[in-house]
Amino acid sequence: MEFKFHVEGGDFTSAGTASSQIKKVLKQINIDPIIIKRVVVALYEAEVNIVAHAHHGDIKVKITPQQVYIRLDDEGPGIENVEKAMQKGFSTASSKVREMGFGAGMGLPNIKENADIFTVRSEVGKGTTLEITISTVNNG
């Protein structure tokens, strides 16, 4: 089952639309609540990333009985140093964004923590693509 969402940069009021929708679906197909939480947290962080940093982006979510695959493509400034951005606490957010409660430097590390497979591809000045895969089969 596939879902598509469009996200506008700067639209903080709509952040969380995709994660709410996906959460609802996963609950209805009896996915373990712990796994749902991981999907929701990872997707929400990624969604907020687009809102906070990019001009706009598209989210594609593919749910199969074995896994949830999420791909987020945005057009925006890109990430200069992906390695650094993956470190906890590293942030380039402006003070204005921080005041709003975002930009604490937990975005990408938090996604990584919740994903089984996580890849980031970014081109400065063009945009970023995230791929998140979370297995829905509870192994532990």
């Binding site: 089952m1 609950k27 209805q28 197909i29 009896n30 996915i31 609540p33 199969t64 009985p65």
Partner: peptide, 23 residues
């Protein structure tokens, strides 16, 4: 303990199929 609602089917594979149909 959680008391999750089984809307479609206890098996995820079957539930996903039914949910697609419902959609």
């Amino acid at each position: 303990e959680p008391r999750s609602i089984v809307r479609f089917h206890p098996e995820t594979k079957e539930a996903l199929k039914m949910m697609e149909k419902a959609q």
